[in-house]
Design a protein around this nucleic acid. Structure first.
Lengths: 204, 204
DNA sequence: GATAAAACAGACCTGCCGGTCGCTTTACCC
DNA sequence: GGGTAAAGCGACCGGCAGGTCTGTTTTATC
C-alpha cells in the first residue's frame, strides 16, 4: 500500500474507533489504551499521527462528527419544498435509527456538548460550530418555506429552528433512559401539533 | 454541638460542595481530593461518612438534586389552575435563573443523565426517577387542565409532557454554548405558540 | 477528669492514564 | 538490494485517582 494511503487508513481507523468509544463511555472515561487495544495498535502509532488526546478528539469532531450530523440532520432537508414535511421526515428517521440501536447512548453531539461545556472551550467551540451549521440549515429551510407559502412571514425562523433543535436534543436524552418507542411516537405527534399551528398549506 | 448534628452538618457540607463541583466539572473529572480540599476536610472524614464516591453521588442525587428539581420545576406547577400558564411561568423562571448565572453549565439533571447513561445503571436509574416525578407532575397538571376546561380531552397529556421536558432539556444545553438571553426569549415565544395551538381558554 | 465512641487527619497503597523515547519494522526509491 | 524515511512498537515515567488504615482529636457521659 502506498505510504500516504496507509497513514490515512490508520488515522481513519483510530478516529472511527475513537468516536465509537468516546460516544459509548465518554471522552474522559475512555483511555487511549482502550482505543488502541481495540485496534491492536500501540501508543507509538497513536502519537505518531496525533499530538495529544485533545488533538485527536478535535480531529474526530471536525471530520467524523460533522459528517455524521450533516448526513443525518442537515442534508435531508436541504433544498426540499415543504420545510415542515422535510424536517418532520428527517427527525422521524433520526429517531427511528436511534430507537433500533440497542447501543444507543443519546445524541452524539448533545452528549459531547454537555461533557465539554465549561470544561474545554476549544472542543466546545467546535461542537457549537456544528450546532450552528444545523441551525442555519433549518433557518434556511424555513425562510424558503416562507417564500413558497408554507409559513406565514411573521413567524420567527430562528426561534422555530432553536425550538426544534432543543426538542430534538432533549428527546434523545430522554429516549436513553425511557421507552424509546413510545417517546419517539409522542415526540413526532407533538412536533406535528406544533407545526400544524404554523403551517399554511395543510399537508398533514 | 450534638454529635449527630455535627455529623449531619458535615455530610451536608460535603454533599453541597460535591454537587457544586460535580455540576461544574463533571462527576468523573472531579476527584474526592478536589472536594475535600475545598472543604478543608480529609479522606478520613469522607470515608467515615460515605462508603464510596458512587455512594456519595447517589446520596447527592436522592437528596439535594431531587429537592432542587422539585422546588424549581415541580412545586411551582402543583395545584395551579391554568396548566399552560403555570408551566410557562415556571419554565420562564427557571430559564431566567440560568441566564443570569455566570457559572451556568446547563441543566443539572440533563448533564448527569448524559454523563451516566449507559455508564452507571444505578445512578442513571435514580436520575430517571427524578425525571419521572417531573413527568407525573406535568401530566397531572395537564389532566387537571382538561377537567377545568383549559385543554381539549383528546390531547395526549403524556406526549405533551414529554415534549415540554425534551424541549427544556435541550434549550438548557443550547444556552450554555449560545446566546442565553436570545435563546430564552425564542424558547418562550415558541412554547407559547405550541401551547396556543392546544389551549381552549385564551389567556395569552 | 477518666472513658469510650464519634469524627477526623493524613500517610500510604495500587492501579491507571496521558505522554515520552529509543528502537524495530515496513514500504518506497534508486 | 541497500538506503531512507515513514510507520509502528512497547517499556517506561510522573502524576493522580479512589480507597485503606492507623493514629489523633473532639465530644458526650458518668
Amino acid at each position: 500500500m502506498e505510504k500516504n494511503l496507509k497513514s490515512r487508513a490508520t488515522i481513519n481507523r483510530m478516529q472511527q474507533k475513537g468516536l465509537e468509544l468516546f460516544y459509548q463511555k465518554g471522552y474522559y472515561r475512555t483511555s487511549l489504551d482502550d482505543i488502541l487495544k481495540a485496534l491492536e495498535l500501540s501508543k507509538g502509532a497513536f502519537y505518531y499521527h496525533f499530538q495529544s488526546k485533545e488533538d485527536f478528539m478535535i480531529s474526530i469532531v471536525q471530520h467524523l462528527l460533522f459528517r455524521k450530523v450533516y448526513s443525518m440532520l442537515i442534508e435531508p432537508i436541504e433544498g426540499k419544498e415543504n420545510p415542515f414535511q422535510s424536517i418532520e421526515l428527517c427527525l422521524e428517521n433520526a429517531l427511528e435509527t436511534a430507537e433500533h440501536n440497542p447501543m444507543d447512548f443519546g445524541f452524539v453531539l448533545g452528549n459531547f456538548m454537555s461533557e465539554f461545556n465549561g470544561r474545554n472551550d476549544q472542543i466546545s467551540s467546535y461542537l457549537n460550530d456544528i450546532t450552528r451549521v444545523w441551525e442555519v440549515s433549518l433557518v434556511t429551510a424555513l425562510q424558503k418555506g416562507k417564500s413558497d407559502g408554507y409559513l406565514e412571514r411573521h413567524h420567527d425562523s430562528e426561534g422555530i429552528a432553536s425550538y426544534i433543535m432543543a426538542s430534538y436534543f432533549g428527546i434523545r436524552t430522554l429516549m436513553v433512559g425511557g421507552n424509546p418507542r413510545m417517546l419517539r411516537y409522542q415526540y413526532m405527534q407533538q412536533l406535528r401539533t406544533y407545526f400544524k399551528g404554523m403551517s399554511l398549506k395543510s399537508t398533514f
